[in-house]
Amino acid sequence: MLNKKKGGKLISVFWLFVLAIVGVGIAAGVSIYHSAEVDIREIEAGNLYEKISNCIIEQGFLIDDVLKEDFNVSDFFEECKLNEEIFGEGSVFYFNVQILDKSENLIKEIRGGDFSFEGDCEIQEEDEEGGKVTAKYYPKCIRKKETILYYENNEIKEAKLEILTASNQVGKKIFAIG
């Protein structure tokens, strides 16, 4: 049995323990608050989609250059004023432009950035049963399909344009600015 003195010391040990828990809780709360990220990946993916879409479609028509055989990814970057280096190795962006004919056969495909995002985007899309996988660290994706027209041998033809864009950029704190 503890006498009053020893009981007092025991209570103060518990009190210090409670203070420690409260302190850790306050520190954790403040740290979580200040390390919270503002997530704009979906907005960025949307911006990239708009930029590509506005670049290759003019008044409902696909621009002629895109379907030329020698029109490659570098030409695409130049045409749409995208920085090719940013879409190079270790990129945090991805785009895939597919032009399909009426029967959904692929006519042309242009893509750039981190190709692994394609699979990550598919995983997050709704499946046939309406289920959806959400993954916090996967890229945010925008996929849209639309019907467009194009000229071929002076004839107007119909095609489907599918654009997939993705962003997984979170930014970074840097400690030395050169």
């Binding site: 990239l48 940013i86 930014g171 400690f175």
Partner: peptide
Amino acid sequence: KLGRKGGYSYSFFND
């Protein structure tokens, strides 16, 4: 950069 310890960097994709 708003403080003495470096800054925050965020890339943009247009050229």
